[in-house]
Design a protein around this nucleic acid. Structure first.
Lengths: 300, 300
DNA sequence: CTGAGTCATTCTCAGAACGAGAAGAACGTA
DNA sequence: TACGTTCTTCTCGTTCTGAGAATGACTCAG
């Protein structure tokens, strides 16, 4: 074949360094539940630029040696100290790419962001070139910018001030009042680069995704109660839910959860009967979906 | 500030070519409606590799000079000959990134895919290094592979064989039977690189997105009838819809469409009353959403 | 041990949304 | 003019939803 030969010769002569370089990184928005609140994994940058500031865990993709998914899993593992088994329980999906030429002062860097849902993980351990790592409450990080493409509209907050009881053994967590921007938490609110926006986009994706997929179970252990599951939704959406209706809906969606037949103990609880235990079912989509409250208000 | 000075010195000494290079491209899945059927924009590759084969319009991101969004808009404009005004009516959003090291034989190329919804556009004109460009019916391109991350499950097809009447002046278009893979259309079905999968992912995104956003109107002109809108949903979902229920739903969703008060003529119609004309409303989300039929069947 | 408070689970009820079918009127074509 | 097509509006029975409440199991302070 002439064409085959032509392609071969072309590839032999091809010089990958003939182009202006663009670096490719992956950054991970890893979300987990701690003390009933949603937290995001952050690292303190050890090197320049933005040395000493918070940033998302991430790093350069190894050219020619790994896919984007593999790079994201590797960075997440490095930063959390997770072994392969624990990592298998983490849901990891691509969130989107960020590529404004000025987003990194060093050079043009395109970052492919990933979103991770993890059950309660051990404390973060700084890996790689990070000077430290920690789980930061998302309530302290919320002010969001404008989207490069679709998402990242101002993130809706809880509708009212109040408290709700978390799931098994969790303390009540205060909601924020609408309009009040979250006060900068301990450790500051600003992330390096455009990571503020990436976190906001990841949060919005998470809020949308648990509406129509069973991924909320990825925040929980092997077995859980309906209340545990409700606590996930309340933490991610930042709004309290009607316990009775939630219970009915979860059990009515085919394949969302399946009963283990067992009943949990409830250490640290403030009373109430022992709840039944469930495990994640085999559904990949929830039908009907669990829609966020106050959907109409967010329509325009 | 010491830290400030440190960062400055670091940047001055920074060498962007010290890394193994990864190239960054954008590829656009541009969808439009032609003769009542959904079509995707494709170009015939002029250069190596895959010379002469169909591929998505796209190209390298200009390092340091444009964002990903800008690069996607530029590539789309080059390939369609659209001016800025026409381009403004096209919805363009990021779809996802594809970065397996072996997806391009030249080197490690990360491609950021974009999805475009366009009203009926003029015939494509080959721009840049393309040898040709055309709108291909998506029915001929459907066999999909496995996803790198979340999406790209086997795409659901229309449920039954039959025909439906398109919108204003459109001819009926046959549905596909379930399970039957679409026959390779004229010009072949295989795209270069992993563009088959990107098209499949874009199609699935489009199918999902018109459920809960008013983006179906992006396929239509300034004004349209409810039947035109229904034809969009039928073409994208590949299934006929109940005309009466669709009508009721569209008008009941706040901000989806607003009446112009006028009534359209209907050239080429096969009869029936003149339909009222509407324009897109100001809603950004549809509530309640228009869900695809047979949702339960797709759940597991 | 008792009383108060917490919480899982199940019901009720009214309103909203849905799919299927059909009616009535407007219009093109044979 | 007769007929087929299509827009538009209704009806009907079913399902889904949010709000509230009842029941009973359990913890904790006194």
């Amino acid at each position: 074949m002439d064409a085959r030969q032509q392609e071969k010769e072309f590839l032999a002569a091809y010089d990958p360094r003939a182009f202006d370089p663009i670096a490719v990184t992956v950054d991970v928005v890893a979300l987990t539940l701690r003390e009933g609140g949603l937290h995001v994994l952050a690292v303190r940058r050890g090197g320049q630029p933005f040395a000493g500031e918070w940033a998302l865990p991430g790093g350069f993709v190894r050219a020619g040696r790994e896919s984007l998914d593999e790079a994201a899993a590797r960075e997440l593992a490095e930063e959390t100290g997770l072994d392969a088994a624990a990592l298998g329980r983490v849901h990891l999906e691509q969130l989107g790419s960020y590529g404004r030429p000025d987003r990194d002062p060093r050079m043009h860097v395109v970052s492919v962001a990933y979103l991770a849902f993890a059950p309660h993980l051990p404390d973060a351990t700084a890996g790689g070139d990070a000077a430290g790592a920690d789980w930061l409450p998302v309530q302290a990080i919320l002010p969001a910018g404008q989207p490069e493409t679709g998402p990242s509209r101002p993130i809706e907050q809880g509708r009212r001030t109040g408290t709700y009881g978390g799931g098994t053994g969790r303390r009540p967590v205060p909601f924020e009042a609408p309009g009040e921007p979250a006060a900068p938490g301990p450790g500051g609110h600003g992330f390096a680069f455009d990571h503020d926006r990436i976190v906001a986009d990841g949060l919005e994706r998470a809020r949308a995704k648990i509406e129509y997929t069973p991924l909320a179970t990825a925040f929980l252990g092997e077995t859980f109660t309906i209340s545990d599951l409700r606590a996930v939704y309340e933490a991610v959406w930042g709004a309290p839910l009607h316990a009775g209706n939630f219970h009915r809906k979860v059990l009515s969606v085919p394949g969302f959860v399946e009963s283990t037949g067992e009943t949990g103990s409830r250490p640290g609880s403030r009373g109430g009967p022992r709840a039944r235990l469930y495990r994640a079912g085999d559904a990949r989509l929830l039908h009907p979906a669990l829609l966020r409250p106050d959907r109409e208000a967010a329509v325009r």
